[in-house]
């Protein structure tokens, strides 16, 4: 559509005080924006000053909440992770109930672990959400606005942790519980079921693990400031790396492999632990240390670097 020239635009060369009035009387249409109101109408510029106060962490969390839930891909991706958890759990359970092992033999021995087979995919999706929430602000330049408007940068990190953490915890908690129930229902045809109340520790552990992975994603986003680098590092170092290291002789890997985030995490999301893994308590401790440590590292870098 060709935008017709209004008299207002013809008034441009004259520096007269009447130009804004012309603008007001003859609203100019920009391509899709609405008519520009006159700036002479200073009541529009000066609205009553809103309450004075300070920027509080609560305000910043509110802001991050709006940001997180106003981007459709965030909640669609979270829902996809939840869906993957339940759907793959059901598929694995169906396969397992036919007596076929979808993975290592030990996996089959516990119907709950089978029902949570989809977590392996969900954790990648959720980790990517964590990276994206931060890295997208760096790629658009929005991070500068975020930092400058709240003054202290630590608040932005804490608020993102609070929002991503609570959102992922809620979605993952529901999805993991649903996966256990649905997987068992599929599995029930051939084997006895385990009541949900008996595996609350696994449900909590898995939810805790997924939340932690999302927060590792957040930390990597702040540390690497790029979507590609963040996702690459997350997938490479956290998910694929340990599997490659597994190919090394046990005499080498025994000492450190179990302390990596994914391996420490595996100790808290299964009922059947192998001697290679950390104990449940140590698993929580080491995994939490990774999450907190990476976030602390992100915080220190963000404070020191130019935004």
């Amino acid at each position: 559509m060709i935008t017709p020239l209004s008299p207002a635009s013809k008034a441009i060369p004259t520096e007269s005080q009447t130009a804004p009035t012309l603008l007001k009387d003859n609203p100019m249409t920009t391509i899709t924006a609405s008519p520009t109101p006159s700036v002479q109408d200073s009541s529009v510029i000066k609205t009553k000053r809103s309450s004075t106060g300070k920027v509080r962490t609560r305000n910043v969390i509110q802001s991050e909440w709006i940001k997180f839930w106003s981007v459709r891909s965030n909640y669609l991706t979270l829902l996809a992770a939840g869906f993957a958890t339940v759907a793959f759990g059901m598929i694995f359970s169906a396969v397992a109930s036919d007596g076929q092992a979808p993975g290592p033999a030990a996996f089959l021995t516990n119907p709950v672990d089978v029902a949570l087979g989809g977590v392996g995919l969900a954790e990648m999706i959720i980790g990517v959400v964590g990276v994206m929430v931060v890295a997208s602000e760096y790629s658009t330049g929005l991070i500068r606005t975020s930092f400058a408007t709240v003054g202290r940068r630590g608040r932005v990190i804490r608020a993102k942790v609070a929002v991503v953490g609570s959102s992922v915890f809620a979605v993952a908690g529901v999805a993991v519980t649903a996966a256990v129930i649905a997987g068992q229902a599929v599995y029930a045809g051939t084997e006895a079921t385990v009541p949900v109340t008996d595996v609350l520790d696994v449900i909590f552990g898995t939810t805790y693990y997924l939340t932690g992975i999302a927060l590792i994603g957040v930390a990597l986003g702040f540390i690497l400031r790029s979507t590609a680098a963040g996702i690459g590092t997350l997938v490479g170092a956290v998910f694929i790396g340990p599997n490659l290291l597994n190919l090394l002789p046990d005499s080498i890997t025994d000492y450190f492999l179990k302390y990596l985030p994914s391996e420490a995490g595996s100790a808290i999301l299964t009922q059947v632990t192998t001697p290679d893994q950390l104990s449940l308590g140590a698993g929580y401790l080491v995994f939490t240390a990774w999450v907190v440590g990476l976030l602390a590292c992100a915080g220190a870098l963000v404070q020191r670097r130019d935004a």
């Binding site: 004075t52 106060g53 305000n59 606005t145």
Partner: peptide, 8 residues
């Protein structure tokens, strides 16, 4: 709105 709430 996200910017506004930070500063009340």
């Amino acid at each position: 709105r996200a910017l506004a709430v930070t500063n009340g």
